[in-house]
Structures are given as C-alpha cells and as structure tokens.
Amino acid sequence: MKRLTLKDIAKALNLSVPTISKALSDSHEINKETKEKIVAYSHEHNYQYNALARSLKTGKTNIIGVIVSTISNSFFSQILEGIEESSLFQQYNIIIMQSRENPAIEKKCIDILYSKGVDGILISPVSDRANLNYLEQLHHSDCPIVIFDRINNSVNTFKIGIDNKKAAKRATQELIDRNYRNILHITGLANGVTNERLTGFQEALKQNKIIFDETLLLRCDLSQIQIVEQQILSKLKELEKEQHRPDAIFTATDLLTNRTIGLLAQQKIKIPEQIALIGFSNTNYAFSFNPPLTCVSQPAKNIGKLAFEKMIYILECRLKKREIVYETIELDADITIRESI
C-alpha cells in the first residue's frame, strides 16, 4: 500500500501543502475547523509523517532520551508510564536506557543518546556527583537535561522529585509512635536521595530523644545487586549474635524493601511480631504481602509527567528564545499504614 503524503492530503482536501503541514503540527496559524478536518482525514487514512525528512528540515528528531537505574524497579516503571503517556500527546518518541547504578554505564547511555541526536534527556542520576559536569555541559549546549527523582545535585535545570527528608522522618515517626526504638535503617551507599532519607531518619530519632546507633545503620552497594541480599543477611546475623536484634527496620529504596521482606521470611522472622518493617516501595502489590506492607510511596507517574512537560517547555522556550527560570519541584510522598508495623 502506498504511503500517504502531505501532497495527497492537500489534493484530497483542496488545500495547500504548507496548510496541511501546519495543521498536523498543531500550528496556531490554522483555524480550528480546518485543523480538525485535516487531522480527521489523516487519521482515517493512516497518515504517518516522515520523521527523517522532518528532522533534516527542522534539526529536531522529536526523540527524548530517558535514563533510569533499572526498568524492573516498580517506581521507575511508573515514572516511565507517566513520561510515555505525556509523550503520546506531544508526538514524541522515547528511548529508554538503564544505568544500573553504575557511573560508567550511565556515561555510555548519555553518549549514545547524544550521538542519536535526541532533543533532550530526562535522567535520574546515579549519584549527586558522577557525570554531572557532563550533563551540565550538554544542558547549556544543544541538549537540555531535566532531572527527576534524584534531585539533590548542582545541575541548574528543572528537577522533579519528593521531599525525601520529610518522607523519611514521617516514616520513622510512625515506628516510634508504635514504641519501636531499636530501628535498623537499611540504605544505599550513594549520596543524594539516600543521604536525605538518612537525615530524616536521624532527625526523627533526635526529636524523640533516641540516640542514633551506628550499628543500626547498613549501607548497601546498590550497583552490586547480587550481593545486596548477602549484606542484609550478614547484618541481621551480626546483630542477632550480639543480642542486638532490631525491633523494626526502615528501608530506603524499593529494592532494599523487597529484598528485606524476602530475607525475613527466609529466616522465619515474623513481621511485625519479631521485627516491624516500613519501607519506600511503589509496588502495586504491597497489600498482598504477608503481612501487607506499610510503605512510603512516591507519586511516580506524576513525577514522570512533570519531567516530560518541563522538557517540552524548555524546548519551546529555546525555540522562541524565551528566558527560562528553572525550579526544583518537591511533591509529597504518601505513607500507607498496613499490618507490617
């Protein structure tokens, strides 16, 4: 079947090719009635614009790159859902890549996306330091950057996430309000988000006159997923041996929450009778765990939508040479109380 062209549509509707092109680009120069007629005809006849020809003409590819740590993480998959939904309305394509919490892999992802001529990159950085100078250079040249989730860094752009310290403080307070005092905090090695959550944890302890115990802190190397379970298990056994078993655990990421639940079950440690558990988790199945999990959930889909919208805003402002005032947007996380605490 022959591909429908702008000329074909113009001939069928007795309009000019520029009019068809502007209407399909949602130009304000074309009145609503004409635009609707053109769009309806193009949909009815399955018109697909020639992306290569358009990119050669405009210098834009209409492709946005996205870099997350792992697609399998429910939090990031929900962010990607928000980005993907927003991109459909804007006729943009998305290329998704995974950094796997590794700065070298993240650098390679950025290189690949830039070499493909993406119009911009949305990224949740590996840390608050790695590759940020590179991202800053791209942002101030021809490839704007928008940062989501891990927003505690120096890049001057739009950053969308949550107030991590506030969320962690609230989660810790939920445990303290239920008379848990020996709380093990399991977190990551990298600075940024996990440090903010650690600060919130410590502030809640201090506010309740509970001394922060270094032995009740475990930092896991999230770039080495295969050894995370061993690190958690070793810590639990170490504390058990020293007769210093925690009465509650607060986990700082989805990955750590999921691994900890499995390990406690494996060790036949009952939740919450022996150890209570609260953690960051965006899984849709928290209610079906045994027992149902009390979790801190982030507005992931909204974060994704906002990140994409801010990218489109940057691209439009640059096209029209308008000044951009960047901001950091911190949304509120939710805490859902269930039977694990």
Rank of each mutant, 00 (worst) to 15 (best):
S77G: 12
C109I: 03
L15H: 01
E85I: 14
E242F: 04
E33M: 01
K107G: 11
D247T: 02
T199G: 03
L216I: 11
F148W: 03
I145T: 02
Q230G: 10
A248E: 04
I271S: 10
I232G: 02
N284P: 04
L306R: 01
C109M: 05
I312Q: 12
D221W: 06
C317P: 04
I110T: 03
V228I: 15
L331E: 03
Y134V: 09
M97Q: 11
V126S: 07
Q243N: 15
A307N: 03
E316T: 06
K11Y: 06
L205H: 12
Y92S: 07
V193F: 08
I227G: 09
F287N: 11
E309W: 03
A248D: 01
I38L: 09
K209D: 15
A204W: 13
I303N: 00
P18F: 13
T294Y: 14
R318W: 04
L80G: 00
N179L: 05
G117T: 07
Y326D: 12
E240G: 01
L217E: 04
G65I: 11
I112S: 10
H43W: 05
I227A: 08
L56W: 12
S223Y: 05
Q267D: 08
K321C: 01
C220T: 10
T61A: 09
N191D: 13
N102W: 09
A12T: 00
Y41Q: 03
S99W: 12
I123R: 03
R150D: 02
I186Q: 00
V126P: 01
R100I: 00
S234Q: 14
K166L: 08
G262N: 13
L24R: 00
G279F: 02
S27Q: 13
I176F: 07
L135H: 05
I275F: 09
L132F: 13
V118L: 10
E330S: 07
C220G: 04
L198T: 01
F308K: 03
S234L: 10
L184R: 10
F250R: 03
E44K: 15
A300G: 06
F76Y: 15
A286V: 12
D128E: 12
V66C: 11
G262E: 07
Y114C: 07
C220K: 04
E214L: 08
R178W: 10
D221E: 12
I147A: 06
V17T: 09
T61P: 09
N195P: 01
S74I: 02
R245P: 02
C109H: 01
T257P: 01
S223M: 08
A23M: 04
Q137F: 04
F212A: 07
I275E: 03
Q266T: 15
S281N: 14
P246L: 09
N191V: 06
S234D: 14
D221S: 06
F308Q: 04
H140M: 14
N14T: 07
E316F: 00
K32Y: 11
K107H: 14
K11G: 03
L239A: 05
